Simulated assay, not measured.
Amino acid sequence: MSVNYFTPVSGLLGGSLIGLSAATLLIFNGDILGASGLMSSFVVAPKKTLTDPSQHWKLAFVAAFSLTTRMLIGRDELSDESQGYYFGLPMVSPLGFIAGGFLVGFGTKLGNGCTTGHGICGLARRSTRSLAAVLSFMAAGVLSATACSPTCPFYPYFRESLETIAGHKPTVSNKAIGTAIAALASALTLPGLLRRTPKNLDAKESDEIIQVNNKRKVIPAIVSGAIFSLGLKISGMTVSSKINGFLNVKGIKNGSWDPTLACVMGGGLIVSFVSYQWVKGFNIVKNDKALECPLSQKSSGGNFNIPTNSVIDSKLLIGEVMFGLGWGIAGLCPGPAMFLACAGNQNVLFGWLPSFFIGSLLAETIKLL
């Protein structure tokens, strides 16, 4: 292990912020932070996501996330050196981003989750299904990243040399696309924020209570989205070479292994676990004040939308293995990819992201058969 790569303090801090983002959604809104599900919803069920008031919190989350990302990105943030390429680690090629995005999109939709949904949220509530998912995608990710070495026949297609990408930097137009994503998400969120909240509700007025609860989800989602972006930035998980540095276990022998990802996952898992101790039915620590209703919701209409499926089936395992393979190839899972798309990274905008959406749509079609 080399101290040049390992950043435990920023990893723990960033991971804890990611866990806090998940905890905010859980405690206040009763929702789960699943980056893959949130992203795929915009192509798998776009009409529902954009028009259903119960989904407006997703727009608010994306708006806050993207605006925060734009504020965190410096002028040279996406240069080759800032992405960690100067370490001399293997770099992902354009084809690698395309292949990785497709596998991640297909796998996360088929397996219903990724590092946030299953890893940070699922393990925190002691889900055996999520444990099986995490073990599957971790094993596949390690296999994929480790096997993709100079002796692998796919190496020339999925990796590039330092000489090939030397001097490449995102253009102004790429950054403008990231800004446009932030502006569009913010514009779509405004109607929900400006809609008048009914006053003096009677408990029987269920429709109006639902309207109130939907609107009350917006502010916590904004806070959660901003924290999530900050956590990804601080943790370093937006640098694909750091992910590859963890998953490629050959680095243990040559001194390039980077265990920062373990610190990120550990920090996020601890904070998320603590938040579940405040949710009745999911707490293992006795807590007389455990919540039956999320804090931002009216008790007569608010519920915790926590998955209870415990089935470990072929779709889960195959999906998570495919996600792991794509994760190992491109060094990106959905959360960091969202960050880089909003930042204007051309490989994500024009390679990883379109492939992710195609993979998600294909998996959704297969699930419906």
Rank of each mutant, 00 (worst) to 15 (best):
E77A: 10
A99P: 00
L110W: 05
R70T: 06
K109L: 09
Q83H: 13
V92L: 11
Q83R: 14
L95F: 10
R75I: 13
V92Y: 14
T128S: 10
K109N: 09
F65I: 00
A99C: 02
E81N: 11
R126G: 10
S66N: 09
G117C: 06
G107V: 11
G96R: 10
I98T: 04
F87N: 05
R125C: 14
R126H: 13
L110D: 06
T108E: 08
A63V: 00
Y85N: 04
L103K: 08
S79H: 08
G100M: 12
T68I: 05
C121I: 10
G96C: 08
Y86E: 12
P90R: 14
A124C: 09
R75C: 14
G107A: 12
L78K: 03
L123C: 13
Y85A: 06
Q83L: 15
S127V: 08
P90W: 11
T69L: 00
R125T: 15
G74H: 03
V92P: 13
L110K: 10
Y85M: 03
A63R: 03
G119H: 02
G88D: 00
S79V: 04
G88C: 03
L110T: 03
F97Y: 07
T108K: 08
F102T: 14
A99R: 01
S93E: 15
F97G: 01
F87S: 05
L67K: 00
L123N: 11
